[in-house]
Simulated assay, not measured.
Amino acid sequence: MKQALLRVPLAPLFAGVVPLSPETARYVSRVHRLREGERFLAFDPAQALEGEATLVEVGKGALAARIASVHPASLVPRRPVTLIQCVGKGDKVDAVIRDATELGASRVIAALSARCVARPQADRGARWRRIAVEAARQCGRGDVPRVEGPLPLVDALHAVHGAAGACLDPRGALSFGRWVGEVTRVGEVMREVALVVGPEGGFTDEETAACEDAGFARVKLGSMTLRTETVCAAALGALLALTDA
């Protein structure tokens, strides 16, 4: 069996000789011990491009990738899916972004609601984007979700106007499977889907009403109440299984 090439994020990606940053050079030469002349797969997650690369030395201690050609990434999600995740304590959003990337979300919006305990700084976005890139590298995905926020919950809801929305609520009357069947009927165009997940304490009644006013159905994911950081993997995994998208 042919061994898969090491996947390395590299941007901007183009045909020719692409210099490697010191961080990327250390990753390929010290962590994975690639030597001059060995190959790896370079991918640009922002442009969803990839190309086979050969490691070359371009100066004392400086490395580059020689790329014959680039082409669209071979593995990208087919359906646009936005996850609105209310911010949880500690590193819970980090875990959610990692899972969302691996499970095909095209956009992740960190939201602030009344019961959010954590209030991350705006510069947290850079860390979240790095986590998404690393998750894409690991799972074979050729792009990454757009990571936005933190935004007030109402603003996040308005940012996905027109999508088929579900407010994941253990008190919801509509099952997730039934909702998916209604919004992704056979023969329908790949309609955008948006899921909104509350914080540890759930939504207030006013926030649930705001979700419904924005067109989000109240959908029950199962009989058990899940932790906020677990809902992402459960819902996106179920969506993949039910729609193969």
Rank of each mutant, 00 (worst) to 15 (best):
residue 1 M to S: 15
residue 12 P to K: 14
residue 14 F to Q: 13
residue 15 A to G: 10
residue 17 V to H: 10
residue 21 S to T: 10
residue 24 T to E: 14
residue 24 T to H: 10
residue 26 R to M: 09
residue 26 R to I: 05
residue 32 H to E: 13
residue 34 L to Q: 07
residue 38 E to R: 11
residue 43 F to S: 01
residue 46 A to G: 01
residue 47 Q to F: 13
residue 47 Q to S: 11
residue 48 A to W: 05
residue 53 A to I: 04
residue 57 E to K: 13
residue 62 A to H: 15
residue 65 A to W: 02
residue 72 P to Q: 13
residue 84 I to Y: 05
residue 85 Q to Y: 09
residue 93 V to W: 08
residue 96 V to A: 07
residue 102 E to V: 00
residue 115 R to F: 15
residue 118 A to S: 14
residue 123 D to Q: 08
residue 125 G to I: 11
residue 127 R to I: 04
residue 128 W to C: 04
residue 134 E to N: 12
residue 136 A to N: 10
residue 139 C to Q: 09
residue 144 V to R: 01
residue 147 V to Y: 10
residue 148 E to M: 05
residue 153 L to F: 13
residue 154 V to S: 11
residue 162 G to A: 09
residue 171 R to I: 00
residue 173 A to C: 05
residue 177 G to T: 11
residue 177 G to Y: 11
residue 179 W to A: 01
residue 187 G to T: 08
residue 188 E to G: 04
residue 191 R to A: 10
residue 194 A to V: 06
residue 203 F to Y: 15
residue 208 T to V: 15
residue 209 A to T: 05
residue 216 F to L: 07
residue 221 L to W: 07
residue 222 G to K: 03
residue 222 G to E: 03
residue 223 S to D: 14
residue 229 E to W: 12
residue 234 A to Q: 06
residue 235 A to L: 01
residue 240 L to Y: 06
